[in-house]
């Protein structure tokens, strides 16, 4: 049985690795694009004019108020009817990035608003314009504050990228489904996949925590998960 599983694991490995590649690709690109989008939206919400703020709120509410799956269906199955056609991978990347951008915008907005108003006053008093103040004073502090929430978003995206299998992206879960359908060994296949996600999650959380510690401001402490040891 054990030898048999070993052989089965080795046979499945090429497919699983290929799927893993797509999962990582989806996760990293959508988190990065979503981050850029999130910063723009968050700044628009905090510092924008009424119109800009309204636009950002509208976008964020629209995305957060509708299921990711429906968004993916609209992009992949809906848009072709008006002549806009994406490959499955393109559609998944666009959907996940647009979705993550809305969530990251809200995390970032919270962090930006938690930076004391005196920081902006001090920056402006030195003669910095608003953009310089945001860039050199507000964001460096806000981004540090947002790391724990951002870490959640990363893990969420890593796991929910599996939803892309529904629009035929051959990421990790899709590969698992493929192997299982051909071998009927559902339990083993999805247990393997679960372990892969688990390892990815633990490793990425650890990396983000280390980054948070390295970036922590001396005297204030790292914005990191509360561990039992700190209690």
């Amino acid at each position: 049985m054990a030898a048999d599983f070993g052989q089965f694991f080795l046979n499945s490995l090429p497919n699983l690795l290929s799927g893993l590649g797509y999962t990582l690709l989806l996760t990293f690109i959508s988190i990065a694009v979503g981050f850029c989008l999130g910063i723009v939206l968050a700044l628009g919400r905090v510092y924008g004019t009424k119109v800009v703020n309204g636009f950002c709120v509208g976008y964020i509410e629209l995305i957060r108020g509708t299921p990711l799956l429906v968004q993916l269906f609209i992009i992949y199955f809906g848009l072709p009817t008006i002549g806009i056609i994406f490959t499955p991978l393109q559609a998944a990347l666009i959907g996940l990035a647009l979705n993550s951008g809305a969530y990251q915008a809200e995390y970032l907005r919270g962090s930006i608003q938690s930076v004391e108003s005196g920081q902006m006053n001090a920056a402006r008093s030195l003669g910095m314009n608003k953009l310089q103040s945001i860039r050199h004073v507000i964001l460096p502090q806000a981004l540090r504050i947002s790391i724990p929430a951002w870490s959640n978003e990363f893990i969420y995206l890593l796991q929910y990228s599996s939803i892309a299998y529904i629009i035929q992206v051959t990421e990790l879960t899709a590969e698992g489904k493929f192997i299982a359908a051909h071998t009927f060994r559902y339990l083993e296949v999805f247990a393997m996949i679960a372990v892969i996600y688990l390892i990815l999650t633990i490793v990425s959380t650890e990396i983000i925590d280390r980054i948070a510690k390295r970036l922590s401001i001396p005297g204030i402490g790292a914005a990191t998960r509360i561990s039992l040891r700190d209690m």
């Binding site: 005196g118 006053n121 001090a122 402006r124 460096p140 502090q141």
Partner: peptide, 20 residues
């Protein structure tokens, strides 16, 4: 105003040093 503020320093009651 940014150019003019260069010429006017401001010292705050609660310091407002840049924390980072």
């Amino acid at each position: 105003i940014n150019k003019l503020r260069e010429k006017i320093g401001f010292v705050f009651q609660d310091f407002n040093l840049f924390n980072h």
